[in-house]
């Protein structure tokens, strides 16, 4: 009986102390770590079209279309099938792709999650941190340079 009462006392203690752990979500968004991996943001200005991100992507989320002389470049990313592993960001030599802190995005159909270059550029930052700065200290460790040739195509 003592143990039973001890259990009841424990829950009662939680009930009367009035503390809550949950947050009122849309009004108070939770804190997100600077390392958080959310929706991709793409910078066309930085991109050198080396296609390493396309190669490293484990499940073909990134699709780059262009001809041999780099004409008609397209950068498509199906955010609906992305697994947020952040390998594309790690492998990018020029920081052209970054995973933002943005995790709130909705669409009515899966097709709408196929983002093209323009949509990727317009992905918002909504927290006031500079991701590059936040991540800089460990940057060189992301994808070890190591031996062996780098296949830019």
């Amino acid at each position: 009986m003592i143990g039973l009462l001890k259990g009841m006392a424990t829950t009662l203690k939680h009930a009367v102390d009035g503390e809550t752990f949950t947050v009122s979500y849309p009004e108070e968004p939770p804190e997100v770590s600077p390392r958080f991996r959310g929706v991709h943001k793409f910078s066309q200005e930085r991109c050198i079209w080396c296609r390493q991100c396309e190669n490293i992507c484990p499940n073909d989320t990134i699709q780059i279309v262009m001809d041999d002389s780099h004409n008609g470049e397209q950068y498509n990313l199906h955010i609906g099938q992305c697994i947020y592993c952040r390998l594309c960001e790690e492998v990018c030599p020029v920081d052209a792709i970054l995973l933002t802190q943005n995790f709130e995005f909705v669409a009515e159909t899966k097709d709408e999650f196929a983002y093209n270059m323009e949509e990727l550029r317009n992905v918002p930052w909504y927290n006031s941190i500079d991701p590059l700065e936040a991540r800089e200290p460990d940057r060189e460790a992301w994808v070890g340079e190591g031996e062996g040739e780098v296949d830019y195509q």
């Binding site: 829950t11 009662l12 939680h14 009930a15 009035g18 809550t20 752990f21 949950t22 009122s24």
Partner: peptide, 13 residues
């Protein structure tokens, strides 16, 4: 509300 109080949640508000 009661369950929420026991489990440290806010619940309907």
């Amino acid at each position: 509300k009661i369950t929420a109080a026991f489990t440290d949640r806010i619940s309907v508000n």
